[in-house]
């Protein structure tokens, strides 16, 4: 009896933590100022939140209901593999489109040449005179 009460408390904790992390991730995405800052919220906090919610579901269905938890495992695995890949692609898209960013966001896209960001072009070292 006590075992089930403790287990229910653990499941409730994971549910509330998952909801809170999801909300914090979306709050960061809605609140931050430029795209590269906004990318942080969903890719980290939201992944953590969905992980917590799925752990709660796994505990509920696996321990209390004694059902297999294959689907939750698959969803967790798939989301945790694909979240960094889509974040990388989104960051690459943002760099490619040269989005406006706040002054505090440091670093320039490495694939852009000097003349593309409004500076004097650098002559190729092999030519010698450009």
């Amino acid at each position: 009896m006590t075992y089930y009460v403790i287990l229910e408390g653990v499941i409730a904790f994971f549910l509330v933590a998952g909801g809170a992390f999801t909300f914090i991730g979306s709050l960061g995405m809605a609140h931050f100022r430029d795209f590269y800052m906004r990318l942080h919220g969903p890719t980290k906090a939201t992944t953590m939140g969905i992980g917590s919610t799925l752990v709660a579901s796994m505990l509920y269905f696996g321990v209390i209901e004694s059902q297999p938890v294959v689907q939750e495992m698959l969803i967790t695995l798939f989301l945790f593999i694909t979240a960094p890949v889509s974040a990388h692609l989104l960051a690459k898209t943002g760099l490619h489109l040269q989005l406006r960013h706040a002054d505090k966001t440091r670093g320039k896209p490495v694939e852009l040449r000097k003349e593309e960001i409004g500076e004097k072009p650098v002559p190729h070292p092999d030519k010698g005179h450009g």
């Binding site: 909801g19 999801t22 995405m29 969903p42 939201t46 919610t53 799925l54 939750e72």
Partner: peptide, 21 residues
Amino acid sequence: DMPDRLLALDTMYVNSIALIV
């Protein structure tokens, strides 16, 4: 910009999975 909307959609489907769970 376009990537912002794409990021919002990406987050939205993750949140909808949480809703389904």
